[in-house]
């Protein structure tokens, strides 16, 4: 069975400071879950060369194959376009199970996994905190209303992962190269990827600033919180 993990390199801050990690904690959990399942693990990213860093991170930690899809038409597309490309790549890799992070700590939109499922016409489940496979099903656990529910979904399926008990394997050397696929190889035409990033909102985010009130004494804090009805 082939598990495909969809990854993305965490983005640098809009103010220029670098991302603290290569991949987000949810993406890392998705990779750890895939490696723990056994079988073939392939990782896919859509984007320019910097995404190779995320893919090499995965290759060193148990993924057997990595592909990055890139083409001019992909610059600035929103989650619909990214999902089309990733879905085509997953199809090419003959994925039975597709895992990805539930949401990233940069944009945190959490839309790509469900959108890939929509493109492929397969079921999805978000926010899993555990993943197992009992062919022909995937078994995922999910927190909801005071319960941890164990849910069984038929394969092929997309599961987005928040956390997993399985640790990532330690990094290894001597890993294969990242394959680079262009859009044509996946049968995608640039004009199909029409939606652009602007519907996420303004591309340069607004910095929050200067709203913190610094206090000296705990008593002062309690008085303020009481006055504001926060206690």
């Amino acid at each position: 069975m082939t598990t495909v993990v969809l990854l993305r390199r965490l983005r640098a801050h809009p103010d220029g400071s670098p991302a603290p990690d290569v991949v987000g904690s949810c993406d890392a959990a998705a990779l750890a879950a895939a490696v723990a399942l056994g079988g073939e693990v392939a990782v896919v990213a859509a984007g320019p060369e910097r995404e190779d860093e995320a893919l090499r991170f995965a290759l060193r930690r148990g993924a057997g194959r990595a592909a990055r899809v890139w083409g001019d038409g992909l610059a600035g597309v929103d989650y619909h376009g990214v999902a089309r490309v990733l879905a085509a790549a997953a199809r090419r890799l003959d994925a039975q199970l597709i895992l990805t992070g539930d949401s990233s700590q940069d944009e945190g939109q959490g839309a790509v996994g469900p959108a890939v499922a929509e493109v492929l016409g397969v079921p999805h489940l978000t926010s899993a905190v555990g993943v197992a496979v009992e062919a022909p099903s995937v078994i995922a656990t999910r927190r909801e209303r005071g319960m941890v529910r164990t849910l069984k979904l038929p394969l092929p399926a997309v599961v987005t992962v928040r956390a997993t008990a399985a640790p990532l394997p330690p990094p290894a050397d001597g890993v294969p190269d990242v394959e680079v696929w262009d859009l044509a190889a996946l049968g995608i035409e640039t004009r199909e990827l029409k939606h652009r990033d602007r519907c996420l909102g303004r591309p340069s985010p607004v910095r929050l600033h200067g709203k913190t009130t610094m206090l000296r004494e705990p008593a002062e804090l309690v008085a303020r919180l009481r006055a504001e009805g926060l206690l």
Binding site: Q105, D106, G201, P205, V206
Partner: peptide, 30 residues
Amino acid sequence: YVPEPSVEYGPRGDLVLTRSVYGWAHRRRL
């Protein structure tokens, strides 16, 4: 798709959805 924005009613009868990104450090405004 705009998960968990704050909803503001603009001065010109428009609707503005703002969400925090990069762990509260920045906001996106739609």
